[in-house]
Write a protein that binds this DNA or RNA. Sequence first.
RNA 1: CGGGGCGUAGCGUAACGGCUAACGCACUUGGUUUGGGACCAAGGGACUCCGAGUUCGAAUCUCGGCGCCCCGACCA
Length: 415
Amino acid sequence: MKQSQLFGKTTFEIPKDETSTNAQLLIRGGFVDKLMAGVYTYLPLGKRVLWKIENIIREEMNDIGGQEILMPALQKKEDWQTTGRWDIDVMMKVKTFFDKEYGLGWTHEEVVTPLAKKYIRSYKDFPFSVFQIQTKFRSEKRAKSGILRGREFSMKDLYSFHASEKDLDRFYDEAKDAYFKVFDRVGIKDQTYLTFASGGDFSKYSHEFQTIASAGEDTIYICDKCKIAVNKEIIEDLKNSCPKCGNKNLKEEKAIETGNIFKLKTRFSEAFNFKFIDENSRENIVLMGCYGLGPTRLMGTIIELSNDENGIIWPKSIAPYQVHLVSLGKDKNIINESVKIYKSLQEKKIEVLFDDRDESAGVKFKDSDLIGIPLRIVVSKKTLEKDSVEIKERQKKNFELIQINSLIEKIKELL
RNA sequence: CGGGGCGUAGCGUAACGGCUAACGCACUUGGUUUGGGACCAAGGGACUCCGAGUUCGAAUCUCGGCGCCCCGACCA
């Protein structure tokens, strides 16, 4: 992609109404645009990052047998009334000209349960799980912290269905592992803790995945021995101790809830009377689990964790482009060589953003740091005199001069 | 939803109740520059959030609405 053609623009000014790091950097870097409180447009750069995060999640969900579907965001009022959740304050409702009401989905149990019931009757069909990556709507009383808490946001929600509690437990653990694989691949595993939290109206405890960050809204207590944590909301129930080893010496931290998994058990299967026929030809109630992970929140969290005074530092796995090719100077030779390199990278399927703009070196370097692409390659008069280009990793201070004919090799080594 | 703050050009800001609403960034044209947010010259762009009121006169004061941000409560 040529940067001169890129839709979206970097800006030096800090948006007045944004105080969170993620929103400031995303807006300044031209990744997102705010339409209103908690509602953002993802511009080309931001959309690419989101796309990569979603794909990582998608792969891990596929790996544990999740089958991707897409459910409607516009939902039936009657189904929400069935579970008694129609009149919940986070629910956004829409009304037609003829006063017919619909709900906008903030979760999908009310769709997925009747859906599964329609197709599944026999024990032979269990277990199974379906997931989607979709837009959720929540009427937050106060949207805040940039893309960390929006009123419209992207969500991966997985729902699993089981014939026995034992099988639900098994899958629940597999999902837990899959979540940590996602956190590992997007570079925040070390800061992310499996956290005991309240179970809502479904079960005693649920598990959250809490990522340590000063921008976090949650307070958790970490047991260093077990690498697990407890959410403040239940720490007193547990007598201020680790639920695994009883350790009372817990460390308090601020954290962002990046994921949440629940054993729903029979909460929704009962509401919708979702039963199956077992081996003995008897009817049995279905057991369910649900597993949420928000790509947009994950994106914001990663920025909160990975930035410096100059901008974002994207992990390689989710950077909008792998390489930022920056040409300095208007000299024909420089332009020709840069275009040549640009084309050769494209041929090798290396994702490259080519800063071909007629801007000063200062502007280009500042923008490059702000956008935060992992590898920066500079082509200038100086480097060309030695048939070379300069290559620099975003998170490092020093650069290296490298011969143009061995550039591709070097890039592959660094990526 | 309670408390606080703020709405002026695309963005960031200025303007005592009084002249044609000013400046920087961005944008357009021409020229000089090109290794860490360059310079010169010439331009275009505003129903000062909306609606009432006070006043000879309102961006400025008053009331109401809407929006945005922060703190809290609530929440993926």
